[in-house]
Amino acid sequence: MNINDTSPSDRPINIELFKPNLAKRYNLDRIFAFLAWGATTIAVAILAWLLFTILVDGIGTLNWNFIDSFASRKAERAGIKAALAGTLWVMGVVAVFSFPIGVGAGIFLEEFSEDNWFTRLVEINISNLAGVPSIIYGLLGLAAFVRLFGFGRSVLAGGLTLVLLILPVIIVSTREALRTVPDGIRAAGFALGATRWQVIWHHILPAAMPGILTGMILSLSRAIGETAPLLAIGAASFIAFKPNSVLSDFTVLPIQIYDWVGRPKKEFHDLAASGIIVLMSVLLLMNAGAIYLRNRFQQNR
């Protein structure tokens, strides 16, 4: 319709068009608000349903025997001793490697780097790697760590695979933590004649450390729950011993759970639920620790 063509007297005006019709519109509003709250309620309800079923299924078989026994073909004697030990070993490897590499890369990108091709390439890579499915990392681990480097299906191969998986997350959270340190600290350090590294080491890192550790804990809690990449490198599911070096075979809690869920017998499903309770409790503790650190950090500043 042409905008200049507005001669009001020519045509009869359709009054209906301009009627606000508020009652109907408010009704639609109410329906929409109801839908929005409904969706949120459904999301919360599903979480409650999930937690409830797992608690009901798993609480019966959750006892000290379950935690202190190795895997067994008899459901009543099976436990998660090997899986817990394996998870601890793998997380040890992940922490030892991912902390220096992730924090170092974060420091490089945030404090040292100039805007050149290398920095840009690294940044593009990090954002791309965050979107790669975890099972692809498993295939990389299978080809590189298990075969090429000859680590076998060991704690070391599994740990390094998970390190590559969570590195982008750690780098991003480290950079965010470094960014929250006020620039005044850097300027003061430089004004006293310190080199950039001296300022970082003595002033910026200590100030950013709670934030970095928070990110580290959250990344580790993601790594603990990962199953697919470890399945892809071929971590065994039936292990009846604790790992005694980084090169021994291992199983972890999620793989043990996966193995039990996949069995036809109901008894093993309940064991899986008990395993999930243990796994989720560990995750909850780690998240609570991260939140505690974050809150203390915010109070100090």
């Binding site: 170092g104 420091i107 780097s113 290398f118 890579n125 990389l140 080809a143 590195l167 982008p168």
Partner: peptide, 28 residues
């Protein structure tokens, strides 16, 4: 000197992300 060494180490750590991408593409 220390700063240069540290910077090179941190740069190498940052390069791990590039190596990961290359590793994924190469193995696949």
């Amino acid at each position: 000197l220390i700063q240069t060494i540290v910077k090179c180490i941190c740069g190498a750590f940052a390069a791990v992300s590039i190596i990961t991408t290359l590793g994924i593409v190469a193995t696949l």
